[in-house]
Design a protein around this nucleic acid. Structure first.
Lengths: 144, 144
DNA sequence: GTTGAAACAATTACGCC
DNA sequence: GGCGTAATTGTTTCAAC
């Protein structure tokens, strides 16, 4: 990972479909050299994967929220985990140190969907003792 | 946005560099038809952009945290905003409804860097009355 | 790392419904 | 508007160095 790799990653972050020939013009390297560097960045797991960033608003997901969840005992983690993985509206789930055990980032169509998620999916789970929901009004920055 | 568009988006989410000819085999459409659909998804802002997802661990960012920030008065927002935009370790910043005004997602190399971010950048700002930091132990799910 | 040829993919122009 | 085919153009891969 040298300066050129970092430059390539920066370009690919801005446009993941930028061609190696286009990148080669920026970093002043031949096309095979660029391709090989990208291949190695993928192989070395620096690049997790190429993906597409969707506009949630355009797909009807107008509501973004963070839900903090407290789980009573570790034996309830398996059921919680299953629910998280199977629920597409849960974008992120982090295990936390502190008062709450998990932080969920969820994208939904409406407050109705949020109510349903909290009442019928999260709070219904065994072991969920407390939740705390933060509604996002607007997003200033959102990167990976 | 029909079923085929959704299938294309699903494939591109998994691999943003998948070629149109590869996609065409999955959706049973000609290559120009696939290219045109992708172009329109970009034009119609459903696709925000193509990007690359990096492995934070591999790039030395071993610490992930969420910081909730309370700002006293709206006149302090401008300075806060500037700091957020200029700080690369801040991956996300959401304006919240509730007790805290902002939620930050930050990726750092160490707790030392976290201490520095909180003490020397965030708390030093005018108007920051309270912060609350949640350290991420592990991440179960992280999508866009 | 580079270059150049071969293989592959995207784009364009067209006709079709 | 949306699609397919075929020719052109552009890009990547593979070999040799």
């Amino acid at each position: 990972m040298d300066r050129i790799d970092e430059e390539i990653l920066k370009l690919l972050k801005e446009n993941g479909r930028m061609t190696s020939s286009e990148i080669s013009k920026h970093v002043h390297l031949s096309v095979p050299a660029v391709s090989e560097r990208i291949r190695k960045l993928e192989e070395g797991q620096v690049i997790d994967r190429f993906t597409v960033r969707l506009n949630r608003e355009q797909t009807g997901l107008h509501l973004l929220a963070f839900i903090m969840v407290q789980l009573e005992k570790p034996e309830h983690v398996a059921g919680f985990r299953t629910m998280i993985v199977q629920t597409p509206s849960v974008l992120e789930c982090h295990h936390l140190a502190g008062e709450y055990d998990y932080l969920l980032k969820v994208a939904l169509k409406s407050t109705g969907e949020l109510e349903q998620l909290i009442s019928e999916q999260i709070k219904r789970l065994e072991g969920v003792s407390k939740t705390n929901t933060m509604i996002v009004l607007s997003t200033m920055k959102e990167e990976m």
